[in-house]
Design a protein around this nucleic acid. Structure first.
Length: 571
DNA sequence: GCCGTTTTCGGCCCGACTGTTTTCAGTCG
């Protein structure tokens, strides 16, 4: 086997994009993207399907696509793809990442104006040459410039989940090396920031040379930018920068603290040390020239008269004061989570059945699962008609009879319409165990209008929760304009919980607002918003954000048992 | 390019929004 089904899906997806750029029939394009979806969601073994000739039985895979898939699977290449790929410059592909530019416009820019990279596009915009193209205009030209800026702002930034996965892969090799005494991923990954700039790995050892070699020759590394005896910097194949630092084991706790940051937290820590006549650096804690013995980070905090501050809280947002008064929260942990809500099934745009999702949740140790498919207005995601709702509820009743020690709750992700009304009448809303109100359309309202719209929805007595409150997509879409302070107050007033959407692209509610919500008495619900069994695992990212937001077990809705939840909602 | 037939070609999800037009095309979710 040369390529697996996900790799093949990516090739088909790319062919779709190329065909779009070439102005091919839109339905032909869709056939390719459809096929990519089918492969992604395929549960059966591709090898078996090919051997038995059942590939053609898959809906959306015909003669042509089946041939392509077999060719990619067995040879790892596809002649037709290679030919197509060569006909499009990389820069033209990259232009598609600019907001508001799709294949049609990119094609015009490329063919009529000869623009084949973003830098050139920027120049032509500044020269006013884009505005005079047919179908373009002043406003679109301005928007493109804005979009280019937006893209640049995000360059060199990565989602936490992507950065963490790579960091752990690097760490794994280092951990297993015989010269390693202690090692850890430091930096913003350790602090669980939603966006990460680069990877910092720290290791203690008596002999750094072999570790430097191991790190700089790692298969994930594209280029080495610096290599000395204590520090190496590399650029990874993913475009991320990664640093490895080697220190002595005596220095390790100090270096770990220093390289974990944040910078602001470190400044506050040093100031505190200075007040006590001490000096704190990445090498140690000194009184004059005498080092203070510290085996762990905990010892450093103790030496400064502080309780241990979890890495997630080290943002200089009050943790120093709280630690000195021994008032730090006991942060919520993954083990505290009893059940998972905001789950999609194949009733709307999920890939799996309710039973499959419930089964996976159960094996994760969960006690309940809160289904929440889309409501009827979200037609593109297969929103549920009132009849679908009824059918789903019957199915859930059946499953609940069957499953022992596990409960499936009837919920819905109900759209908030433009005017703040909900997508179902109360007569339907009242049939659910819980209702998550959500916005999926009409993003461009004024702040006042959007705030009013959401607050109005939360006043509906059947609404139990607010989904992804700002609608942001990290590194790709700004949050819509909204007064979150007002929204949080309104949630508190109406007894509505706010979701911490754990999808790594969202992580919304932002951790910076969790503390405020908690103070107002709003319960947060850590929801994966998963569309597949795998997606249930995203809950760990939400727990990280909750911890970053100082949340304790009792601040989180889904640390409750089913019975506690029912009572809570009744109240 | 796929599907499903009234078996060999017509339909394929759709609504909102924006900006360009003067009735619509492109993008997005």
């Amino acid at each position: 086997m040369k390529l697996d089904k996900l790799q093949i899906a990516r090739v088909l997806e790319e062919i779709g994009v190329i065909l779009e750029l070439k102005g091919e029939n839109a339905f032909k394009v869709r056939a390719y993207t459809n096929a990519a979806r089918v492969l992604e969601q395929l549960e059966d073994d591709l090898d078996g399907l090919i051997k038995s000739g059942e590939l053609l039985k898959l809906k959306g895979i015909g003669k042509n696509l089946a041939d392509h898939i077999v060719e990619l699977h067995s040879t790892g290449r596809l002649k037709e793809y290679q030919k197509l790929r060569k006909s499009i410059p990389d820069g033209v592909f990259e232009m598609l990442n600019i907001q508001g530019l799709g294949p049609k416009k990119v094609r015009v820019l490329w063919e009529d104006l000869g623009v084949d990279k973003i830098e050139l596009l920027e120049l032509r915009c500044r020269q006013g040459k884009v505005a005079i193209l047919p179908g373009f205009g002043q406003k679109i030209q301005d928007k493109i410039l804005q979009g280019i800026q937006f893209l640049r702002n995000f360059q060199g930034q990565f989602l936490f989940c992507d950065a963490q996965a790579v960091a752990l892969a690097l760490l794994d090799e280092i951990e297993r090396h015989k010269n390693t005494i202690r090692c850890e991923v430091a930096g913003s990954i350790r602090r669980r920031k939603e966006i990460v700039g680069d990877i910092d790995i720290l290791v203690s050892s008596k002999n750094s040379e072999p570790l430097m070699e191991l790190f700089t020759k790692h298969p994930l590394v594209k280029a080495v930018t610096a290599k000395g005896s204590t520090k190496a910097s590399v650029v990874l194949k993913t475009g991320m920068n990664a640093d490895l630092r080697v220190v002595t084991d005596d220095e390790f706790p100090f270096a770990l603290h220093y390289f974990t940051g944040s910078k602001e937290h470190n400044v506050a820590m040093r100031a505190r040390a200075k007040k006590q006549g001490l000096k704190l650096s990445e090498y140690g804690l000194f009184k004059d020239a005498t080092p203070t013995k510290c085996k762990t980070e905990s010892d450093i905090f103790k030496a400064l008269g502080l309780a241990y501050i979890e890495p997630e809280m080290r943002e200089d947002m009050g943790e120093m004061d709280a630690a000195s008064e021994d008032k730090l929260p006991k942060l919520v942990e993954l083990e505290d989570i009893q059940g998972i809500m905001h789950i999609h099934s194949s009733y709307s745009d999920g890939t799996a059945t309710i039973e499959e999702m419930a089964h996976t949740a159960k094996t994760m140790g969960m006690k309940y699962l809160g289904m929440a498919d889309h409501s009827q207005a979200v037609t593109y995601a297969g929103g549920l008609t009132p009849e679908d709702v009824k059918r789903q509820h019957e199915e859930i009743d059946q499953l609940n009879k069957k499953m022992k020690g596990f409960r499936i709750l009837k919920g819905i992700e109900c759209d908030i319409l433009k005017d703040g009304k909900l997508d179902y009448p109360d007569s339907i809303l009242k049939t659910f165990d819980f209702v998550i109100a959500a916005i999926h359309s009409n993003f461009n309202m004024t702040e006042a209008e959007m705030t009013k719209r959401i607050c109005k929805a939360m006043e509906n007595p059947y609404v139990t929760m607010l989904a992804h409150p700002t609608g942001r997509l990290l590194l790709s879409r700004e949050p819509y304009k909204i007064d979150m302070h007002e929204v949080i107050s309104s949630a508190a007033k109406n007894g509505v919980s706010i979701e911490i959407n754990s999808n790594p692209h969202r992580l919304d509610l932002d951790w910076r607002l969790c503390k405020l919500a908690k103070e107002k008495g709003v319960r947060m619900s850590i929801n994966p918003d998963s569309h597949s069994p795998d997606g249930l695992g995203d809950i760990v990212y939400g727990v990280g954000i909750a911890r970053k937001g100082w949340l304790e077990k009792d601040d989180v809705l889904n640390t409750m048992t089913v019975d506690q939840l029912r009572k809570y909602w009744k109240k």
